[in-house]
Design a protein around this nucleic acid. Sequence first.
DNA 1: CGACTTCTTGAGGAGACTCAAGGGTGGTGG
DNA 2: CCACCACCCTTGAGTCTCCTCAAGAAGTCG
Lengths: 248, 248
Amino acid sequence: MDAGWDVTRFKAFTCADDDDIDTFRRLAGPAITLKRGDVLRTQGSRDPQVYILLSGWVACSLVVGEGARQIVKVHVPGDLVGMPSLAAATACDTIEAMSGATLGVIETAAIGRVFSNNPRVAALLFLVSQQERVLLMERLALIGRTSAVSRIAALMLELRTRMRRNDPTIENIVPAPLTQEDIGDLTGLTPVYVNRTLRQLRTSGVATWRRGVITIADRDALVELAAVPRSEERDTTWIPDRRVHAPA
Amino acid sequence: MDAGWDVTRFKAFTCADDDDIDTFRRLAGPAITLKRGDVLRTQGSRDPQVYILLSGWVACSLVVGEGARQIVKVHVPGDLVGMPSLAAATACDTIEAMSGATLGVIETAAIGRVFSNNPRVAALLFLVSQQERVLLMERLALIGRTSAVSRIAALMLELRTRMRRNDPTIENIVPAPLTQEDIGDLTGLTPVYVNRTLRQLRTSGVATWRRGVITIADRDALVELAAVPRSEERDTTWIPDRRVHAPA
DNA sequence: CGACTTCTTGAGGAGACTCAAGGGTGGTGG
DNA sequence: CCACCACCCTTGAGTCTCCTCAAGAAGTCG
């Protein structure tokens, strides 16, 4: 777990310093290793855990109706995985590896200790959850109200942004190990139609997505197609200091 | 603010007791009064606030593409409104009243104080956010992967469940002051098609939704149509005690 | 090299959309 | 108290995105 993991979502906040990140990474227990296709847990399984993704990609999905799968989130290294199920007795989603992946387990008790002993990191956890809600809301708006091209364009841009957080050298070539079926499950489309839409993006010279690699040829055009506003970070001076406060 | 408001989301957790609820309700500042159609704040406005809905209904929506509106959440009394934008400099959603409504403002600084001084309530805030994520995930799966009938059936059931939390006497008649256009914006459908789908539910004797009132005639059939698993509450013994802990 | 998964393309169909027009319903003001 | 207006609901006809079914090609892994 020590090797190669120096990235967390907290880095996305300028207010999180190295001490915070260090506190946070100590939460994770021993690592779990998965290979592509492995299922970490199934929707409905009891006492769901929380994980931190150390390497690779995993997806969280829901099954509705007659076995239709909707991926609600693909996670990249540094992401917290499984938080939403924390308030339920059974897991609300299935977690599956999209590539080889390693995860650290975070015990629920450890999360409780963070809230007790480190209000600052607790607040950061809270903020990360709010960011995730925003992403879900944007995906919902995309799937509910836009065309196939927009959804896929927006997905490409979202993945680019998130991958850049881990590797700022990324520009127009973004690793994204998803099959066209996965893309369909993310965007609410069928694999066949994903294929056609990707072809459309390819032949119009905007972007390609082949063999797990997104290549953006014309980013302005892609942003135009996606049409989701992207916002900056907020002033977060309200977050508690590192010291533990006395009772009010 | 004193009158009539004795309901919070925390009550949904068996582990939240009267003291917690009391702590929580003291967060809210003076109330804001809105009438149907009033916009509390617009997507993109700076320094978004957090609110608690004291009475009435409000909706949070995103505009994507060419002015298409997607409602991402309708809130009922007791709900926290506007949390997701807490991590952003500008509001990610527009908040609009679906009926006459009153809201209390919760200063961001007050949220910071909760994390510092009351880890227990902070953890409850955190859990409520996770529940909201689950609801968003389920809505996403519904819109991405199911038919119009399923989406509307599921919406009826969700609203029933949430209204029952405030008023356990509710059974098959659920107040829900949404127009067919609102329902469309929630489910990713056009108002015209919402109308046809409601007619279908009506003529098949399952449920009606007229003039802001849902009447469920055959709940089993409705559940069948909706096809979303609903889960129980989790063991939450990991939540901190009320006392403030010493540094680790 | 062979089995399996993934990608690609075609043809046909259907669920949901658009445009359009008429009818309720409730609120407001004279 | 009635008339008017705004908003919402309802229904029809035609269209289009996107889906389904199907089959073959390309890539991947043992």
